[in-house]
């Protein structure tokens, strides 16, 4: 089975073939042999790649995952060849467009944007406070405020829509 692994902006292709007692991996022109042992089901694995020992802690479902290796956490996205084929048939989803979302959970401390108002790139739209730090949320590009979904004092979760922007009139 071929796996496509996204790490940041880079994509890696790894072919995994299971034999009786180990996995054979192909990455580019290189071949590796791995012994995989489950330490805690679905959560912790000891992996020996040609003898090199890695202790991996896992959080995720095998598609979007965080792997902790050597203390450091890495966000990775994995798609196997079947999943990729399915996605290509059904077509990718359209992006949300001009909705400014909360990048972290927090409390809305101030709202500068008002419906109908024109904004320039860098203009402050609102102030979101998280863990006692005030963070200015600014417009990334020029536009017109279409809708404001929050008011001062609101508590928002990460990903909550804050403001709908339209292209400049």
């Amino acid at each position: 089975m071929k796996y496509f692994i996204r790490i940041g902006a880079a994509e890696h292709e790894v072919d995994v073939e299971a034999t009786d007692d180990r996995l054979v991996l192909r990455h580019g022109d290189d071949t590796f042999h791995a012994d995989v042992s489950e330490v805690e089901a679905g959560e912790k694995y000891s992996v020996l790649v040609d003898g090199r020992s890695f202790s991996i802690s896992v959080d995720g479902d095998g598609r979007k995952m965080t792997l902790v290796v050597g203390g450091r956490d890495h966000g990775v996205e994995v798609e196997d060849e079947r999943e990729r084929a399915m996605r290509e048939i059904s077509g990718g989803g359209a992006s949300g467009g001009g909705v400014v979302e909360a990048v972290m959970p927090g409390i809305v401390r101030r709202v500068d944007a008002a419906p109908g108002g024109a904004v320039e790139a860098g203009d402050r739209l609102l102030i979101l406070e998280a863990m006692k730090m005030e963070n200015e949320i600014c417009a990334e590009a020029a536009g017109v405020v279409e809708e404001v979904f929050v008011k001062e004092g609101d508590t928002v979760e990460a990903g909550a829509p804050l403001i709908q922007l339209a292209p400049p009139a």
Binding site: M1, V14, L25, H27, Y45
Partner: peptide
């Protein structure tokens, strides 16, 4: 990054 991709593929394979 290569090592990480190998480990990610292994874990993804195990979880599937």
């Amino acid at each position: 990054a290569r090592d990480l991709s190998l480990l990610a593929a292994i874990v993804a394979h195990e979880l599937r």
